[in-house]
Nucleic acid binder design. Structure first.
Lengths: 248, 248
DNA sequence: ACTCTCGTTTGATCTGGGTCAAGGCCGACC
DNA sequence: GGTCGGCCTTGACCCAGATCAAACGAGAGT
């Protein structure tokens, strides 16, 4: 986690995977300078759409701050979220035409972007960037598959607990508080968005949230604030196999 | 699709992605010879486990013929399939420790394998292999996400229709009969395996199969043979968004 | 031919979560 | 301060799919 010196923007790019994960891990300065040239930042407001599923999507990038979702909608309106993008997550499909999913900001969002063409060129010229991207894509694939278990086999209560523990864990990592027994964070999703993630209705989400509150597993502070008293309790509620893995 | 000259085995490797997709697409002979050295074939019988989810998994490879599944099981026994491996699909996680999922042969299976260490070495030395693998992993990710929609938002009938049309489409591609109006194939999965894929019970799967048969969408020939009268009808039953995409 | 096993089908009943409907809460805007 | 519009909560009822249970069919072994 380091400050970028893009003074016009004053953004702390704790996230940028290319710089932080792919490049910094090897620190080759010529790549850094190439990346600086094609890099730019974009801001979105809560609720705004970043790209539509069939837009050309001429960039790739990663989330610096805020939360975005990837979702897919059937013609009759049923929608399913297929990915949750938290700070440090990468978006984009190098070598692919369209976006394939709707990308929506669910809170105010800052993204660090690279124009796609030059990024792809850079990728073919710089072997370990492709390797890093493969690495990251494998992580996403693991997360997606883990999520298939949630969608296919868990009860409503377990689904909610799974979602909360994933988000809590992710923020714990970002804030380096991983060993804490309790956790608190702002849940940047509406009940409807949670429902779309979990394959439930918003009423069921609401009822299960109330139930978890009622028996003391979580505390709701205002509309979005969530306090988890005891992470291990929550993880147990999630019915988690494989110790809860490292979803999303 | 070309014959391999590995005479000891007499296998037609229509599948091997490294050779066929990554290498053949560029045909660089030095790589071919390197690959030949670390390549070997493995046969499995129907029902046999290829690797357990926490096994070290010292190889990567691809399916030459037959069908395998990737699945995950919760401690209480609920299981969810997270991937279906048909001929030409790649298995393995270069740069990863374990297998992460149970891999099981659901029919007699031939795999073309590469020992992992040398394969990884080759990968770092040969940029476009990493790129090809990234490509393939992105495809898998798309398939997994498409499947999340099926699991999260489709009805039992739509789920069955989705599964059948995915498999039909995959075999159509393999056999190069893509434009055919009808399709027929052996469904190499038990009702239980289908249920595990679809997040249903085997009874529900059986009932929905009977229903699809009853109203003439499919014909069952013996226990495993399936004939689809009219693919477009089946795809419609699948409730498919995005024209049915290119799942799995 | 008989029977054992394994997968499958079908029926009867139950239930978790969906659906429909009515308020409640709170910040924004007049 | 009032009311309007977004969310969220809660209740009452319903239904798709789960669960429980029985029986069927086909291949394999004796």
């Amino acid at each position: 986690m380091h400050k970028l010196k893009t003074p016009e923007l004053h953004v702390e790019c704790s996230a940028c995977p290319i710089r932080h994960r792919a490049v910094c891990s090897r620190c080759e300065s010529d790549e850094l300078s190439q990346l600086e040239e094609i890099k730019y930042y974009r801001n979105f407001q809560a609720g705004q759409t970043v790209v539509w599923s069939d837009d050309p999507m001429d960039f790739v990038g990663s989330v610096v701050s805020g939360v975005a979702t990837l979702s897919q909608t059937m013609e009759d309106g049923r929608t399913q979220m297929v990915g949750l993008l938290l700070p440090s997550d990468f978006v984009g499909r190098p070598g692919r035409r369209g976006a394939a999913y709707d990308v929506t900001a669910t809170s105010d969002l800052v993204m660090c972007c690279f124009r796609k063409k030059p990024f792809e060129k850079l990728m073919t010229e710089t072997p370990h960037i492709a390797q890093r991207l493969l690495e990251m894509t494998l992580d996403e694939l693991d997360a997606a598959r883990e999520w298939m278990v949630v969608l296919g086999r868990k009860t409503a209560r377990e689904k909610i607990a799974s979602l909360l523990s994933i988000i809590a864990r992710r923020y714990a990592v970002l804030e380096d508080r991983q060993s804490a027994r309790s956790a608190s964070f702002d849940l940047p999703l509406t009940r409807e968005a949670m429902a779309d993630y979990l394959g439930l209705t918003l009423e069921t989400v609401s009822r299960q949230m109330s139930a978890l509150k009622r028996d003391g597993t979580i505390i709701l502070e205002g509309k979005r604030g969530i306090v988890v008293r005891d992470m291990s309790r929550l993880i147990e509620e999630a019915g988690d196999d494989s110790d809860g893995g490292f979803l999303v």
